[in-house]
């Protein structure tokens, strides 16, 4: 059939364009707009140029929050990925145990973020919380409200509890796709347990693991709700991540200009990291 060109066909794309414009482009432009202006209320705005950006990039507060974010992401990745692989390897492959394990694994993923926060906030309390009270009873000094280390441990534990399941489920999906013949061949070749993991199971999990790492990195880098509910960013600024700082700035202090500049920088960082991950992943695909 002959293809015919008609520029009016572009109108077909219009609804989506309008939708995206109102849901993404317009709000983003508003933020850009705020980031280069100063306001003292009364809807009066003054041109500020790149002042907010300069101030932001020079501020310790921003870099400290960014540092905390990176450390947090790396810590939870270092725990969740190996732990997730370990659990997936030890999950049953057939029988009733499969559905039991899958349901247990899926449960934390089904709990809303703020509820997860509340659960751990109560769980860790020294006066009534199961964890906090028990630790105190056996003589361990634990208080996430006053001790920064305890606060970090609580937030990290909470994230591990909440999200390791995702890594487990992805890895498990990779593992069950391995035909029995591979394991049989490995037994015949005299492969050790480690060799089976290294040369059969890990290569099969490779792709899903990359997705898991990407998702967990992005998600943990944008974490807000759970630490906000549990520690509110404290004690001091010890658990103040970028997102928490941002909300403090925009809603708490009503510094719209600096907050807008920070949102943009934050957005660009995440965009950049996503792009890096995406490129690495697709390059690996080409290599294969």
């Amino acid at each position: 059939m002959e293809k015919s060109w008609n520029n009016r066909a572009w109108f077909m794309v219009l609804p989506v364009l309008v939708l995206v414009a109102f849901s993404a482009v317009v709000p983003l432009m508003t933020v850009v707009n705020y980031s280069v202006q100063d306001t003292f209320g009364n809807n009066e705005f003054f041109w500020a140029g790149t002042e907010w950006f300069e101030e932001l990039l020079a501020s310790d507060r921003f870099w400290e929050a960014m540092g905390r974010n990176l450390v947090f992401s790396l810590v939870i990745l270092a725990i969740e990925v190996p732990l997730g692989i370990f659990i997936a390897l030890n999950m049953p492959r057939k029988g009733i145990g499969v559905s039991v394990c899958l349901v247990l694994m899926a449960l934390p993923l089904l709990v809303p973020w703020n509820v997860v926060g509340t659960i751990w906030q109560v769980f860790g309390r020294v006066d009534i919380g199961l964890l906090g009270h028990t630790l105190e009873a056996i003589g361990i000094d634990y208080n996430y409200v006053s001790d920064p280390i305890d606060a970090w441990i609580t937030v990290v534990l909470m994230d591990v509890w909440h999200w390791t399941s995702l890594v487990v489920l992805l890895c498990y999906a990779g593992l069950v796709s391995i035909p029995d013949a591979y394991y049989q061949a490995a037994r015949i070749d005299g492969a050790s347990r480690w060799a089976v993991f290294r040369y059969i199971q890990l290569p099969k999990m490779n792709r899903v693991l990359l997705i898991a790492v990407l998702l967990r990195f992005m998600d943990s880098f944008m974490i807000y709700t759970e630490p906000f509910v549990v520690t509110g960013g404290g004690p001091g600024n010890s658990t103040t991540f970028l997102s928490i700082d941002l909300v403090k700035m925009a809603v708490g202090q009503f510094d719209l200009g600096p907050a807008a500049a920070m949102s943009l920088v934050y957005f660009l960082i995440i965009l950049l990291l996503s792009w890096v991950f995406y490129t690495v992943m697709t390059n690996r695909g080409v290599e294969r």
Binding site: P179, A181, Y182, Q184, A185, R187, I188, G190, Y199, I200, P203
Partner: peptide, 17 residues
């Protein structure tokens, strides 16, 4: 065990690492 018997086996679907 399979290893101790020193057997080689080729399967229906090719198994390569």
């Amino acid at each position: 065990s399979t290893e101790a018997r020193n057997i080689a086996q080729v399967f229906q679907f090719p198994v390569v690492y």
